[in-house]
Amino acid sequence: MIRVENLRVVLAGRPVLEGVSLTVEAGEIVALLGPNGAGKSTLLRAVAGLVPSRGRIALGPDGQGCRLAFVPQETAAPRGLSLLEIVLLGRLGRLGFAVGPADLEAAGRALAAVGLEPLAGREAATLSGGQRQMAYLAQALAAEPEAMLLDEPLSALDLRHALEVAELLRRLVRERRLACLLVLHDLNAAARMADRLVLLRDGRILAEGPAASILRPHNLAALYGIEAALLDGPDGAPVVLPLRPLGAGREAA
């Protein structure tokens, strides 16, 4: 479980997050949505303890901490490291100088979960962008986390792989009872994938709740400054159709 209360982050003298509170239960996916610069990635970094923050961050069922994996958005990989080594590095805190059987087993399970096991020996730099994104997801899984923070986990993926990873994440979160907080730009993917959405604007929470109640024209107008139509999707999740920036005339559009 991830519980954040009244979080405040100031970077280079500028407040980036202000009074943010949210909870992600075990077995739940919560998606952070908002325009560029809203503080989404900073919120993930603050929860991961990588930027100084004020307020309360409690991890695990009793708030005493848990194994947390944070997957940043960057998918570059250096030359000279195999996919298997990249995945093993997910267990950095537990690796001895020599790699133990438990580490290899965890790495093998993680690679199998994302379907990259046949490529384990390949140099990671030669994988496609989408494969590297999966590789870093496997790296996070190798840590056997109880909570996961993912920054745009679908950004480098084509449509098919994006659907597969979304499905994979949903399954893993359910099966392993992970608390999963992720940043997404694709509203429709968020609506289908996440249990709840949190809208973030200028470092504050604008609204939160299930997709159907949150993805409303007035929220999208306030969040992105756009006019959007909402359609009923085939699986019940709303589908957002962005129409035009607010203030732009119909003739101009």
């Binding site: 940043p72 000279g80 950095l92």
Partner: peptide
């Protein structure tokens, strides 16, 4: 191992601890 992690970039190395 930490030095190897650093080859993945600053942010990812930090995320890995």
């Amino acid at each position: 191992w930490r030095l190897s992690a650093l080859r993945l970039g600053e942010e990812r190395a930090a995320a890995l601890g």
